[in-house]
């Protein structure tokens, strides 16, 4: 049995392309989403195949805002954490004017009218993301001053 599996794995390793392992980086700005590093094709295939994980996904509830600048106006840890970990997803949904992350943020900020909130965010995109270097604290504070 082991030999068979060995064959399978080797063959798979030979025959698969794609790339890389997952590098779990959260940050405070755009582009801190999960990205791949440039290691081998084989790893991804094996990872997907064997349900393994690389790196240390831990058991625990880290805040996800470590090292981020604090918000000035919004005192909501859960919202800070959510925004810090979903910067890209949120920016893209705000630009489109709808999405699950926008709805989630509305719920966290106790905003009742979600469609109106989404529209307000979209209309104020350039104020919320004043620059490409906008950080979580800027985004959340700007949201509180423009869309709520």
């Amino acid at each position: 049995m082991k030999k068979i599996l060995l064959g399978a794995v080797v063959a798979l390793a030979l025959a698969t392309t794609g790339s890389a392992t997952v590098n779990d980086q959260t940050g405070c700005g755009l582009g801190a989403m999960i990205i791949r590093d440039n290691s081998s094709a084989v790893m991804l295939a094996l990872q997907a195949t064997t349900n393994g994980i690389f790196g240390n996904q831990t058991f625990g509830i880290t805040s996800g805002t470590l090292g981020c600048k604090k918000t000035q106006f919004v005192m909501n840890d859960r919202a800070s954490e959510f925004v810090a970990s979903n910067m890209d997803q949120l920016a893209s949904e705000i630009s489109k004017g709808h999405g699950e992350s926008v709805d989630t943020l509305a719920e966290l900020l106790n905003v009742q009218d979600k469609p109106a909130f989404a529209s307000a965010l979209q209309a104020n995109y350039n104020k919320i993301y004043a620059s490409q270097n906008a950080k979580m604290s800027d985004v959340l504070d700007n949201i509180s001053t423009t869309a709520i």
Binding site: G29, L30, G31, D88, A91, S92, I94, S95, K96, G97, Q122, A123, Y125, N126, Y129, S131, Q132, N133
Partner: peptide, 12 residues
């Protein structure tokens, strides 16, 4: 980041 920001802003 640069392009994402530009295109998102245009889309918004």
């Amino acid at each position: 980041i640069k392009r994402f920001h530009e295109i998102s802003s245009a889309r918004a």
